[in-house]
Amino acid sequence: MEEKYLQYTPQDFKSDQEVRWCPGCGDHAILNAVQKGLPEVSKVLKYNLERYVFVSGIGCSSRFPYYVDTFGFHGIHGRASAIATGVKVANPTLSVWQVTGDGDALAIGGNHFIHAVRRNIDINILLFNNQIYGLTKGQYSPTSPLGAITKTSPFGTVEHPFRPGELVIGAQGKFFARSLDVDVKLTTEVMVEAAKHDGTSVVEILQNCVIFNDNAYDFLTDREHREDRIITLRHGEKMVFGKNRDKGLILSGLSLKVVTIGQGGFTMDDILVHDAYNPNPGVHMMLANMEYPEYPVAMGVIRNVKDTTYDDNVRDQVLEVMKDAKIKCMDDLLNSGETWDV
């Protein structure tokens, strides 16, 4: 038998549909990263192409399934988590990917999103966060910063934004990672990790909307300062960052603190080692919530904890009950319980 899963190239995952995002949109880079990542996922997990299903809701990001040459379902606004959940429970052998945006997942679809995370259904959620509504042309989203001036907030928003990582961990999420649209290599890396994780994996991808919220992440993508403002976390490695790799994170009291190695008496030994597998969400929550300029913004896999999954539990319970069942077919059921003859 041919081992197809060993042979895929990004080309195999490109559909014949013309990609219609705006020139310069961050989505192009993410699509590129996913098409590069899928051959890798296939190799690692031995998945053939027909096992992939991409599910989306509504929004710019939700056009994604049309551009990937796998099974795909373009749903309705906010409901992708629910649709993806149904796909996975119906056929747990499928590799299910939900592509969604900050409006789709966190506003209209907030309820489905947190419940998918709570259930720990084995789906992978790629959450494109551009802090704006793009497809409806520039209204603020649940992740727009307080005071953001948009078409529906001409005097600045008066509401506090969600932080997706905080929401995921608060909903008992077991996997949360973050990447940046322009960092194709990192996006590919975390998506492979997400695929390997059993349970709901949420990958937040900071994505630039070139038309309605351009330069929102310039402070992170700017080559000059990038390494001083981003910390890329890897399990088992020291939390070190900076152009000169001389800055790190320590725990000071109940908070994280940035220190410079070799200054103030801090040495490499004082720097925290990233433990993504720790079930305790405390440090993960602090890492996910780090904001510039007080902290570097955390990238990579922040939390990756093993637990039972919803789809496995559904399957196991059915098998367990069926094993000793007296009722094996419809006729058995119809004739069960109290009956009498006329």
Binding site: G75, R79, A82, G86, V89, A90, H112
Partner: peptide
């Protein structure tokens, strides 16, 4: 397989996913 959904909309939408699958 029964899925007690988080709301009515998720009830039908999980079923849509299951029908597709």
């Amino acid at each position: 397989k029964t899925l007690q959904a988080e709301d009515e909309i998720a009830g039908i939408c999980t079923s849509i996913g299951a029908a597709y699958a």
